[in-house]
């Protein structure tokens, strides 16, 4: 017998009698204002958010937030003029010098300020981690109350990789002191379009 077959046989012999999946495993979260809840939590986890009317406002804000920054890449056609490099590379190592990545997030969650992105938004999986600074653009209409709602809308294997991003990368491994900017982005700015 192979290890696989031995393991599976042993598991089959030892597992208890069948227990059902519970009838209820999704719950409803009620927030008076989903956008405000999202912003509050994002701020709590070290990110920042700005409600904006259109891409022109995003452009203006970016130019103030990141003046004269080079090695900027974006997947948003509306902001293509701000980019001087591309995330469309065949080798992810080519992104090692990326300073600012501007991407779109198709789905956001109010309860925890998590934003889903997958390979439809990411020309390279490593982009939102390897970049020094990260900007994600979401739409108010795509903010759902909680994770149960998010998974109802998501097909997690639609692409080969997808991730929920909640705030900038961080660590508290030295004496529980929070440090923003561990291995991933040093900041996360979220623009919220109507």
């Amino acid at each position: 017998m192979t290890t696989r077959d031995q393991m599976l046989a042993s598991i089959k012999a030892n597992q208890p009698a069948m227990r059902p999946i519970p009838a209820q495993f999704t719950f409803t979260s009620v927030y008076p204002d989903l956008t405000q809840q999202f912003i509050d939590i994002l701020t709590f986890v070290g990110g920042a958010a700005l409600i904006v009317p259109d891409f022109a406002a995003i452009r203006a804000s970016l130019q103030t937030q990141f003046p004269n920054m080079t090695s900027v890449a974006t997947t948003c056609d509306e902001l293509a003029d701000l980019a001087d490099v591309t995330m469309n590379v065949s080798d992810p190592h080519e992104l090692s010098g990326l300073n600012l990545a501007i991407i779109e997030g198709p789905l956001a969650v109010a309860e925890n300020a998590a934003i889903w992105v997958d390979e439809r938004q990411l020309p390279q999986r490593v982009a939102p981690m390897i970049t020094q600074y990260l900007v994600i653009i979401i739409r108010q209409s795509t903010i759902v109350p909680n994770m149960h709602d998010a998974y109802k809308l998501l097909k997690v294997d639609e692409t080969g990789f997808g991730t929920f991003i909640c705030g900038p990368s961080k660590t508290a491994d030295i004496e529980q002191s929070l440090v923003i900017g561990a291995h991933g982005a040093r900041s996360l700015m979220v623009y919220i379009l109507p």
Partner: peptide
């Protein structure tokens, strides 16, 4: 674990790139 609402990255791997 830490009182965070969710970890910074919750990455779903389905296929190799």
């Amino acid at each position: 674990a830490t009182g965070q609402p969710i970890t910074t990255f919750s990455s779903h791997f389905h296929r190799p790139r």
